[in-house]
Write a protein that binds this DNA or RNA. Structure first.
Lengths: 304, 304
DNA sequence: CAATTGCATGAATTATTTTCATATATGCTT
DNA sequence: AAGCATATATGAAAATAATTCATGCAATTG
């Protein structure tokens, strides 16, 4: 009766605090997880979670969580060993290209974590800006590309990583700081500071300002820290991922606000050549990216 | 992909040396196990067993077997802990009745093994001979009865333990020792030495001699050692479970022969009240009986 | 107190697992 | 070496199990 999926279920619900969000992380529906949990609880005749939000483990649940934390790493290690036994050891190579500038924040720790499990895989970062990073796969200049959109390109597989909220950044004393959330029109009368990227890669412009016909004055900066500095100096507004902001907010020169009432959410995906995507060291890299992101970036959400 | 059933599969095949016999132990068909194994091997792209009889683990198989031996005991322990957390701790009580005299040989070590996992369960042996041991369950004089036949009694659940061969025992110099196997007629002209039990409980009589209309002169002994002594003293023939014999054969005064060409095989079952049979400490006792039997009795076979 | 969000649940659907019926080895015995 | 007994492999059918869909119900929030 007890299966590995049940252990994963318990870990996910415990981490996420709700069945709904755990379902997104496990790429299943809320209903499926609810059925699984109820079945397990019925079988053993105990509740594993107290049904209060956020869901909290009972003693019985803690017991299974402890089991999971004990054995799951051993199982993952064995699967890696098995894959290493089978695959051609030489060919483990991961040239990684990143579309989004801020991504390095979480990519570096993820690469470190991965290296301990796959020391023989050679990792490299593909530098420079590329208008069509996906093309790097076909050109054999990259093996894995992190992008903000899925697409249907033959021979290329997209794996969802996580979704995150884009927050508007403004100087502490800015008049818009009084609002709980900003709308498209709020951006009309101020300078917008962005990375020097095409508009189609800037979610705020593509999904909020352009549909509203708003086209603010622009200013560009290469580095996140420079963007924040310009905002603090009252040179304009910016939009950055929620997980890139906390360290800057601390200083008190800038504040962050939700964009539109429901928030502006974007997703990140790992793209790879179909031929590579099936290989164990590849799949494990994507899994590690996801795990490490959820571990290090508190504000992100699973991406269905 | 890798599931606990796969680990159990690998352990079973490794222990049994063949898929067919592993299938009996896991209460599945040979086909089901073959499909499972092929699927697993295909998924990882390695053979886990060399296809020569007996099936031998490859390096990849060894890796998974090591994983299994590492984590399965932890999982079983966690399940026990969970059951203990849930069940009424006081009521763990196992009064065990045994129909077959020779059973004590393997029952004792099994009870010892069980006690280490369930120290709080109170175990007792119901002594004396009973014409209808199953009735002890309804009379609440026993909680678990080990019998050689299943039956359809309402409120009683039968769990198969294992099957074993009954061998004919005769003095070394006995003329029948020249034969590779004995038939019903071979028993006609000699005394048959048995336990003092009703004929319906003696497989040799019920299933071989009675159908052939053969009714040999009888002599009775309470203890296995006494039966062997009488046989060695050329007082007659006996039939004993194959697993009870090896220690006596060593001395060289008696020899064992198969009964009928295909051998005379019997089964053992654990019977319990339906209400008890579902409880964790009960189920685990039956599992332990089975495991310990297979560990200690080399000649037995799984029982479908 | 309406609106929102999250969990539970029965029925329908989809996917997986097992069995059945054979085909295909692999030995062993004569 | 042929024939017999025993084992594994495999495709198709049957049986189970897992997942989704649609929706109800409860708790929480503005």
């Amino acid at each position: 009766m007890l299966a590995l999926k049940h252990l994963r279920l318990i870990e996910a619900i415990n981490d996420c605090g709700s069945i709904t969000s755990a379902a997104r992380r496990l790429f299943l529906t809320q209903s499926a997880l609810s059925h699984q949990l109820v079945a397990l609880e019925t079988y053993y005749g105990v509740n594993l979670f107290e049904r209060a939000r956020p869901l909290r483990l009972t003693a019985a649940g803690e017991l299974l969580l402890a089991l999971s934390r004990d054995i799951m790493p051993r199982i993952e290690a064995a699967k890696r060993d098995l894959a290493r036994l089978v695959e051609d050891k030489q060919s483990g190579k991961l040239r990684i290209a990143v579309e989004c500038h801020t991504c390095y924040d979480w990519l570096m720790p993820a690469m470190d974590a991965y290296r301990t499990n796959w020391p023989e895989v050679e990792m490299d970062l593909v530098g420079g800006f590329h208008t069509d990073p996906i093309a790097l796969l076909a050109e054999d200049k990259a093996d894995l590309v992190i992008v903000s959109e899925t697409g249907k390109q033959k021979g290329v597989v997209f794996n969802p990583l996580f979704r995150y909220e884009m927050l508007a950044l403004m100087a502490t004393a800015h008049p818009l700081a009084a609002k709980s959330h900003l709308t498209a029109r709020d951006f009309a009368s101020d300078v917008l500071i962005t990375y020097p990227a095409p508009d189609r890669l800037l979610d705020l412009i593509r999904r909020v300002l352009k549909p509203a016909g708003i086209n603010p004055e622009r200013r560009y900066a290469e580095l996140t820290i420079a963007i924040v500095q310009l905002v603090a100096s009252r040179k304009g507004l910016a939009a950055l991922p929620a997980w890139a902001i906390p360290s800057y907010l601390e200083r008190g020169y800038v504040v962050a606000r939700t964009i539109t009432r429901r928030g502006l959410w974007s997703g990140l995906y790992a793209a790879a050549r179909e031929a590579d995507a099936g290989r164990a060291f590849h799949k494990d890299f994507v899994t590690t990216l996801r795990e490490q992101a959820f571990m290090n970036l508190p504000t992100i959400e699973p991406l269905a």
